[in-house]
Design a protein around this nucleic acid. Structure first.
Length: 582
DNA sequence: GACAGACGCGCC
DNA sequence: AAAGGGCGCGTCTGTC
């Protein structure tokens, strides 16, 4: 993760030639003046040739890692580091309060020259079985000189942020994350289709006619109907609510937690049906046919896809694999899965960012964090302590959590004040940032939302009564209760944003550190889910990988948050099957 | 037939 | 016990 290795820029032209050149080192000019090439330019058909021509450790400046790096990987050209111009632009625009402006390299280049700014190309849905990248496959090419100019401009803007070192770290770490994502997309998660099929038949029964409704689902639907005395489709919420109403039970929804307390014979088969129907539709036979090929499940991982910086996956619902389905994730013969889950990641991050001395002390002990908290004002009740911490992070509004929250506030005043401050900022329409500088979007403005409880008082968002003379008819929307509901929701969002987002910051550094540590191994990162990684490796590498993960966790903590006593331990399992990890 | 939104539920 | 944060995605439903 050193910054001293030198940079090369790489760009494709409209004719499919690739141009590469070293970037002049030195301080950013701050004036948008292009940093010129420091050496001869390469013009090649295959971008991997450029990578091989540059020194090892070069940081590659390119438009989009997702667009370029899969091609390099296919040609066997791994790179150590990069600067993803379009991701950097997204982060910088957010930091500058310009959320929503186009983030493409072409747009950034146009802004530099005061020319019309092209909108970003629409995102395409993932196509099963392909490795297509997120954006339009044929974006407007950006010449190498334009790329250099945008890169120089970004360097200057990074220097002008609230904490330049942190923001530069965020950009570098998320660029590294795009490298990790491309490599994970290429590797795929080992997936035994035969195990999955056996599992489905075991849970759902045979399919009528080989491809029809599974027997067990039909039986449960019949049981539900029998309990109501008429035909009821359990997969139609309106039908279920009507049926309960006929039985004298009024329901607001058919959510499980609302139904499972009812005293009615339909409840048990209905809930069983919900569970199995979900598996059938979301991870059943058709999912298998769409997403698993040649023993691998290949979702498209997208770093920073959420507002808070958490990753998303495109296609296949990779971050929502039901626990029961994890039985199908099996290492290759002679290989292992190292499954590592960061212990209480978000509370530890809150300790690190709030600098609450008592909370940092608790988060630095080599034990379960909630148990440690429970001895501080919770009489050793771990569940209560956990609810209090989660209530603070999520913005609990009612229930026992509030009472527990008061105890938490007495023992850890700075930690609670940190999230309370973030909530107040949100309620007042201000922006908040993660530790490294990812910035929350502004509240919705009257022009682009049905209703808006903020925006007045600071002139932000206008108040001209809507656009094009279209007054917003929302007579039910502007009542005080509506406004305060929206305001509080905004506060809960920003409260959670600083913690969830700073945790996502840390996770980027974790992945970068782990990738670096595993560079000489055959081990491959194959899965990442917020606070959990899976590495697929030869059995003889498993112990070293587990140790590398432990080291990377604390190293990521120090790099992200500076000198802190807070530890970031993992629960790690070396298994052949993912389902055996918990 | 395409599309948008609501719903519900899987994960963290 | 009940309800707060972030998502993806399949289904249904209403609309054009």
């Amino acid at each position: 993760m050193s910054e001293n290795a030198g940079r090369w820029a790489l760009a494709e032209d409209a004719d499919g030639w690739w141009h590469a050149a070293p970037v002049t080192p030195g301080p950013p000019t701050g004036t948008g003046t292009p940093q010129g090439p420091a050496g001869p330019r390469l013009r090649v058909r295959d971008p991997a040739e450029a990578v091989r021509a540059a020194p090892a450790g070069t940081r590659w400046v390119w438009r989009s890692t997702a667009a370029v790096y899969p091609r390099l990987l296919a040609a066997g050209a791994r790179v150590e580091r990069c600067h993803d111009v379009e991701d950097a632009e997204l982060l910088l625009l957010g930091h500058e309060g310009r959320f929503g402006e186009p983030r493409s390299a072409a747009a950034a280049w146009a802004r530099l020259r005061n020319e019309p700014v092209p909108p970003d190309p629409p995102q395409r849905a993932a196509v099963p079985g392909t490795q297509d990248s997120l954006f339009d496959p044929q974006p407007a090419p950006v010449p190498l000189d334009a790329l250099l100019a945008v890169h120089a401009d970004q360097a200057a803007r990074l220097g002008a942020t609230a904490h330049p070192d942190r923001m530069r770290l965020l950009v570098a770490a998320e660029s590294a994350a795009f490298l990790v994502a491309a490599e994970m997309n290429r590797a795929g998660l080992p997936w035994r289709a035969d195990v999955h099929r056996a599992l489905l038949t075991d849970l759902l029964g045979e399919r009528y006619g080989g491809g029809g409704e599974p027997r067990r689902l039909a039986e449960l639907a019949d049981e539900v109907s029998a309990a109501f005395g008429r035909r009821v489709r359990p997969d139609l919420p309106a039908d279920v609510i009507r049926a309960f109403a006929e039985a004298g039970i009024k329901l607001k929804s058919t959510r499980r937690w609302e139904i499972q307390e009812l005293d009615h014979p339909a409840v048990e088969p209905l809930i069983a049906h919900k569970k199995l129907y979900r598996i059938y539709t979301a991870h059943g036979w058709s999912w298998l046919a769409d997403w698993v090929h040649d023993g691998r499940f290949r979702p498209e991982f997208i770093p920073g896809g959420t507002l808070t910086g958490r990753w998303i996956t495109n296609g296949g619902g990779a971050l929502q694999i039901p626990k029961v389905i994890r039985r199908a994730v099996v290492a290759d013969p002679g290989w292992r899965l190292v499954v590592a889950d960061a212990d209480q990641m978000e509370p530890r991050v809150l300790a690190a960012i709030s600098r609450d001395p008592a909370f940092m002390e608790v988060a630095g002990r080599p034990e379960d964090l909630y148990t440690a908290v429970s001895r501080q004002g919770f009489s050793g009740d771990r569940d209560k302590a956990k609810l209090a911490v989660l209530g603070a992070v999520y913005g609990q509004t009612s229930g026992d959590g509030l009472k527990n929250l008061a105890a938490l506030r007495r023992r850890f005043p700075l930690a609670v004040a940190y999230v309370d401050d973030a909530a107040r900022a949100g309620e007042e329409g201000r922006l908040v940032r993660t530790w490294l500088g990812r910035t929350s979007p502004p509240p919705a403005t009257p022009a682009d939302a049905d209703a808006d409880a903020y925006g007045d008082g600071n002139g932000n968002g206008g108040g001209e009564g809507g656009e094009a003379g279209l007054p917003q008819e929302r007579d039910d929307a502007w009542t005080p209760s509506y406004a305060s509901t929206n305001t509080r929701a905004r506060g809960r969002f920003t409260r959670n944003f600083v913690v969830q987002g700073s945790a996502a910051d840390w996770a980027l550094l974790l992945l970068a550190a782990l990738r670096q540590a595993m560079a000489g191994m055959r081990a491959e990162l194959v899965f990442f889910q917020h606070d959990e990684v899976i590495v697929h490796c030869p059995a003889e590498e498993a112990a070293a990988v587990a140790e590398a993960i432990r080291t990377a966790g604390d190293r990521a903590g120090r790099i992200t948050f500076g000198d802190t006593p807070v530890r970031f331990p993992f629960t790690t399992a070396i298994v052949e099957c993912y389902a055996d990890a918990k």
